[in-house]
Amino acid sequence: MVRSVDVAQCMEVSKPRVCHAVGVLREGGFLTMDEEHYLHLTDIGREVAEKIYECHCFFTEQLIAADVDPKIAEADACWLEHVISSESFERLKEAAEQQ
């Protein structure tokens, strides 16, 4: 169970920034907020989050395997997971599995 304030603290960003992001995600149908202000992923929200996390882990592992500093690999994976298309990610994953 998590609230916006918990997310802001964990990610070291401002509460207004998190509130804006939460609003966008709620409007998109990716999460809900209960009467106690706890955030809950919807089914589609969980599906999207799992895909993004899979992509994040893949890029982090690949970059570390290529001798990128783990902190840099983590930061770069955070960027890559949001900009790569599903098709490109699937092809890269397939290519990595064949190696």
Rank of each mutant, 00 (worst) to 15 (best):
C55W: 03
D6E: 04
E87F: 07
M1S: 14
L31M: 15
M11A: 15
R46M: 11
L41D: 02
C55H: 03
T32R: 11
E94V: 11
A75P: 01
C78R: 14
E12D: 12
R3L: 03
D6N: 09
A96V: 06
D34N: 14
M1Y: 05
F30E: 03
A21M: 15
S4Y: 00
A77M: 02
L41I: 01
V68E: 01
M33L: 09
G45M: 07
D43V: 11
V48A: 13
S4P: 08
H40A: 11
D69P: 00
E61P: 02
R26G: 04
V2E: 01
G29T: 00
Q9E: 09
S86D: 15
G23Q: 05
R3V: 09
P70Y: 10
V68Q: 04
G29S: 03
R26P: 07
D69N: 12
L31N: 00
R91W: 08
R46G: 07
L25Q: 06
V18K: 04
D76C: 08
E47M: 10
V2R: 01
E35C: 03
E36K: 13
S86T: 09
D34M: 02
M11F: 13
F89A: 05
E81N: 06
E74I: 01
V48I: 14
E74S: 05
A77S: 08
T32P: 06
V22Y: 01
E50I: 08
K51W: 05
D6F: 02
P70D: 04
D34C: 03
C10I: 08
H56V: 01
A65Q: 12
S4G: 14
R91P: 03
I84L: 11
M33S: 14
S4H: 02
H37N: 12
P16E: 10
C19F: 00
E74R: 13
I52E: 13
L92V: 04
E81G: 02
